[in-house]
């Protein structure tokens, strides 16, 4: 399993708060990774840095050995690092089909390779029956699926999912977990989650963040029995 993405001593400060404080780890090809941690641990900031949405103050992000530090957000997507936002960030005045068709174009124009067929992605995210519904008319759960669909249109090599199951029913959460597992056969997938049952179901390598630092990195079972992780979640650290 070759290394795809290297996060090296990344730091990001907001005013007096270190949102991320010297975090390092690597993501391999076709690896499934979960990032967990209590509220305010720096998970979303980390994902922002990994996707190029925010530039780190220190450290580096390397993709296949190449530094992406000074690259704009759209370049990250064109390298294959594609993200889903927290809380379903879709285009309100576009139908589901149009959103998907549009989403694939940026990367396709850059790479010269045709985007995936919209019908296939619609089937994957199970929104075929909602194909002509406007983004603003979709339910919160449907928007989550639509967002995942838009990222898939970009042919990601690393898929970054920020809270993909927030606002979803229990059944849909299980389906999302199955999709993440299936996608991990083709690409690397990084998931930020609060829902521990979801993370347990994925049963993959898990990174634990607390107060901007990475405090644990290992299989979910090992991590969930780690004393420091329990302290962090119970507020003892």
């Amino acid at each position: 399993m070759g290394t795809l993405l290297e996060i090296e001593q990344v730091g990001k400060r907001y005013g007096g708060i270190m949102a991320i404080d010297g975090v390092s780890f690597t993501i391999g090809e076709r690896e499934l990774v979960c990032v967990i941690g209590p509220n305010g641990a720096g998970k979303s900031s980390l994902l922002n840095v990994m996707s190029g949405t925010v530039r780190p103050d220190q450290g580096d992000v390397r993709f296949r050995g190449r530094s992406l530090r000074s690259q704009p957000a759209h370049a990250f997507a064109n390298h294959g690092i594609v993200r889903k936002f927290q809380g379903a960030n879709v285009f309100p005045w576009m139908t589901v089909t149009d959103s998907l068709r549009m989403a694939g174009l940026g990367v396709a124009l850059h790479s010269g390779r045709a985007p995936p067929a919209v019908e296939d992605v619609l089937a994957t995210i199970k929104l075929g029956h909602q194909a002509h519904r406007l983004g603003s008319m979709c339910s919160h759960g449907q928007r989550q699926w639509l967002e995942v669909g838009m990222t898939l249109m970009c042919r990601p090599r690393i898929l970054l999912l920020d809270e993909p199951t927030a606002g979803m029913t229990a059944v849909a959460t299980v389906e999302m977990a199955e999709l993440a597992l299936r996608l991990a056969a083709e690409m690397s997938v990084v998931v930020i989650e609060h829902d521990m049952s979801f993370v347990r179901r994925l049963g993959c390598r898990t990174l634990v963040m607390h107060q901007g630092r990475l405090i644990a990195d290992g299989p979910f079972d090992a991590v969930s029995h780690d004393e420091r992780v329990r302290d962090a979640y119970l507020g003892r650290a």
């Binding site: 996707s51 957000a73 759209h74 997507a77 594609v82 993200r83 936002f85 879709v90 285009f91 940026g106």
Partner: peptide, 9 residues
């Protein structure tokens, strides 16, 4: 912002 993260300059 969303369009940018989909790879559009």
């Amino acid at each position: 912002n969303r369009a940018r993260t989909l790879g559009f300059n």
